[in-house]
Amino acid sequence: MSTQVQERETDTEAEETSDQQQRRRSETGERDDMRERAETDLSEADETVRIKVFRYDPEVEGKKDPRFDTFEVPFRKGMTVLDSLIYARDHFDSSLTFRHSCRQAICGSDALFVNGRQRLGCKTQMVDLEWPVRIEPLPHAEVVKDLVVDMEHFYDQMEAVEPYFQTNDLPDGELEEQRQTRENREKVKMSTRCIWCSACMSSCNIAAGDNEYLGPAAINKAYRFAMDKREGADIKEHRLNIIEQEHGVWRCQTQFSCTEVCPKDIPLTEHIQELKREAVKSNLKFW
């Protein structure tokens, strides 16, 4: 299972309504209490929202062929996409699989493809979406199961830019910090907000076509260090060499898709552009 983009084209939707699911559960005598609770909640809710969720499991009969399942979830004010998934899992189908942890947009676990756009499930309000809501795994990544994708390639790219602070200018004094101006801290501030959710990488056409492209998140990570004056000029030079490689900054065609989907509002495209300019400046120096 490589990407779900093709999936949408062939449209292999095999829908099963929550009614059918409930009937099936009941027949097997499984989790009757859960079903009752779900029904009670449903009847008390003024409104329900329908979610269509991508399902795939490489080893379970009936799930080997990707399909969409439909769940009717009672709507509550303030409900997020993640809330709806948790509800569906805890009330209808405990095998529904997705990553999530902090519920507050800081762990970066739940980047999903919601109504055709990369978003964090936990910070996407249902009221801001068109219903029914279609929830798929991130495009351009291997699907492991349901909404879970393999993140290894993303992590590899992040690690390819030497994503750690390096300096030759540590102060000598005991308990003495390196000085940094407020302006310089402000300069790198947005870049340090990255939560490694990989929404940007998934949205990027270039990354989709060139598997070796570092991608917006990794280049932003390089930016975070290259622009931090505590690292010093030599190390900046070294960093610019890394991001100038064949699959580095010059691949970016400034389509801004990464910037549009970033849940932390990091100006990724601008950072890439700025690194291109820095690289040019740095190269001119040696002429």
Binding site: Y164, L175, E177, Q178, R185, V188, F225
Partner: peptide
């Protein structure tokens, strides 16, 4: 000592006017 160690590892602390 541990906080200064974090600073030396590049942690982006908020800064005063004097850079500390």
């Amino acid at each position: 000592e541990e906080v200064i160690q974090l600073e030396h590892w590049g942690m982006p602390f908020s800064r005063e006017d004097d850079g500390r």
